[in-house]
């Protein structure tokens, strides 16, 4: 089984997680730029974070046979802090990078005007760069927030097939699919969405434009939730092709719209000034 986790925060995870993910079938991930739990108070700490998503994290992932891509944005929570907003000025530099396959996470958190402005502006940046957009939906007052998010997406003029609305549930999936956008689901141990509920949603709404992710981060979460959902799909009678569609082909199709999803990137060892591989000595 091959799995592409379209939303996971690997900079909060250990190498044990990478090993377990690879053993479970995960071969590619997208790490969206988001909040880190501890609020940031200056643009410079965002740039260091972006650099880690573009440098250290893909380097780490490659050691475990996993391709790592990212999405870059000023996230909704921190869009509310005026000290962080200058990040928006440097985004075009970062959105031009090879491993950036979407703008994200953008969207609403507390439904403030500042969040709405940052969302609209970053949808414009996505259109300028020809990139898809990963849009977070709020956890509080979710249905209203999702409806408002869809309005902003529509007003922006971005093609709906370039947009995924994430963290959906039984009450928001219908309106998102009707809009032509992609539907994302974060499978969590307790909150958001469980693997069994996810299977029911797939039975009711089909497998097209559906993205299933673990959204594993620094909180209580599980980087193997993609695999557990795939197993639940099989147990419920979905065939291998349907599972492969949801777990691999859908994320490849969605992020592939960036034109930058190069799944044949070399391992870091091959980026040497010399041909050939170095022999790994097993660390110091």
């Amino acid at each position: 089984m091959r799995i592409f986790d379209p939303h996971i925060h690997m900079n909060s995870r250990t190498t044990d997680d990478y090993e377990a993910m690879h053993a479970a079938g995960v071969r590619a991930v997208v790490e969206p730029a988001f909040w880190m739990g501890q609020p940031r108070t200056s643009p410079e700490s965002f740039y260091d974070y972006f650099d880690a998503l573009l440098g250290w994290e893909p380097y780490r992932a490659a050691q475990f046979g996993i391709q790592h891509f990212c999405t870059i944005a000023l996230n909704p929570k921190e869009a509310n802090d005026p000290r962080c907003r200058p990040v928006l000025d440097e985004l075009p530099r970062y959105l031009a990078k090879d491993r950036v396959v979407a703008v994200g996470e953008i969207g609403y958190d507390s439904m403030t005007p500042e969040e709405g402005e940052a969302l609209a502006l970053q949808l414009q940046l996505a259109m300028e760069q020809g990139l898809p957009a990963l849009v977070h939906t709020p956890h509080r007052d979710k249905a209203t927030g999702t409806r408002r998010t869809l309005d902003v997406v529509r007003e922006s003029g971005i093609a709906p097939e370039l947009v995924v609305l994430d963290h959906l549930n039984e009450l928001t999936v219908g309106m998102v699919l009707d809009s032509g956008c992609w539907a994302g689901f974060s499978i969590y141990p307790k909150t958001k969405m469980s693997e069994d509920r996810m299977v029911t949603i797939l039975q009711e709404h089909g497998t097209e434009r559906m993205l299933v992710n673990s959204a594993a981060d620094w909180g209580r979460s599980d980087p193997l939730k993609t695999r557990r959902t795939a197993d639940a799909m099989l147990a419920a009678g979905f065939d291998d092709d349907a599972v492969d569609g949801v777990m691999w082909r859908n994320p490849v199709d969605f992020y592939g719209q960036s034109g930058r999803l190069d799944l044949d990137e070399p391992k870091p060892d091959e980026e040497s000034s010399f041909e050939g591989n170095s022999i790994r000595r097993g660390g110091a």
Binding site: Y47, D51, L54, Y59, E90, Y94, K97, E271, S273
Partner: peptide, 14 residues
């Protein structure tokens, strides 16, 4: 260099 990914940083160094 400051905003570069590893491939860009290698290019500056070389």
């Amino acid at each position: 260099f400051r905003h570069g990914d590893p491939a860009e940083q290698r290019a500056v160094l070389r």
